[in-house]
Amino acid sequence: MIERLRKFLSHFHPRPVAAWELLIMRVLFALVVYKTLPNAGQIYDTQTSPNGIAHFVDLTFLAADGVYPALKIAMAAALAIYASGFLLPLVLPFILIAHVMIRTLFNSQGWIHHGVQMVSLVLLAQTLVVLTFLVYRLLKKRPFPLTGGRSMGSYFLFYSQMAIISIYVVSVVSKVDRSDGQWFAKSHYIGLHVVKAERDRYYGKLHDPPPGDVPAARIMLANPNLTRLFLGAGVLLELLAFLALYGRGAALAFSLSMIVFHRSIAALMSIYFHFNEMLLVIFLVNAPYWIVLIFRKSRAAPPPPAPATALDI
C-alpha cells in the first residue's frame, strides 16, 4: 500500500519538456499578459479601497501624465524579451512587479476583479523558479542539480501549472469554510445570482433586450437537487484539480473538463473567465505537444498493407 502510494506520489514532479514547447508557451503567455493590461482610461488616480501592496504604496503615480503609456511600452519590450527566453532573471521580476502594481491599482477602487489573479500568479511562479536557479548557482557556485532529463523549463512549466490549479482548489476551501459546510445545501440559491448576472449585463450597456424572466434561474430554484448535481460536478472537478499535475494526459483531461465547465458557467450566468481558459490552454492542454506526438506516431507506424490485387487472390 505504502509502495503504491509512493509510486503514485512520484508522478507529481516536474517532467522533461522540449525547448520548442516552452518557446510556444512563452510567446502565447506573453500575449496574454499584454492583453491583461488595462486601457489608459482604466488607470484610476485614486485608491480609496486599497488592496494588496496599495496598503503600503501609493500606486496612483501610475495615473500621472505619460507614466502608464511609458510603462506599457516597457512591458511590451520586456514581454518580447521574455518570449525569446533570454534574460529571464531580469525581465520576469520587472514584468511581475509592473503587472502586480497595475492590477492592484485597478482593484483598489472598491471592487475586486477576479479575472486576472491567475496570470499574475503564473508570473510569480515563473519568477520564483528562475530566481531559485540563479540564487542556487550564485550561492553554491554550481548549477541547480537536474536529473531525469529535466531542465529549468520543467520546473518553469510544473510550477506554472501549480499556480493555475491552486486557484481552483482554494475556491473549494472557501466554499466549505465560508458557508460553514452548507454550500451544497444552499447552492440552488445561485439561481438568484443567475438573475443578477443577467440584470448586470443589461444595465451595463442597455444593448440587450430589457430584462425579462430568467427561466434557468427558475429551474435552478425549483430543482435544488438537480442544481446540486450540476454545480457539485464542477466543485468536484475543482477539488481534484491537483491530479492534473500527475502527468501530461491528466493535465489534458483536467484542463479540457475545466474549459467545458467555464463555458457552461458562461452560458448560464454570462460570467467569463477568458484569461483562466487561455492559461489552461497554454500550460495544461499544451496542444502543440499532442499534435507533434500524433504526427510522429503516424509517421513511425508501419505502412498499411497494400490493397489486394487480382494476383494475390
Binding site: Q117, S174, L192
Partner: peptide
C-alpha cells in the same frame, strides 16, 4: 492563499462561496 485572502495577486476566490437567499444589484 486561504490565510492571505484578498491581497493581489493572492486570492481565496470567494465568489459564490456562500450562496445566500438574497442577491442585490444596483442600477
Amino acid at each position: 492563499l486561504y490565510q492571505v485572502k484578498e491581497f493581489y495577486p493572492f486570492t481565496h476566490v470567494p465568489m459564490y462561496s456562500d450562496p445566500e437567499a438574497r442577491a442585490p444589484y444596483l442600477y
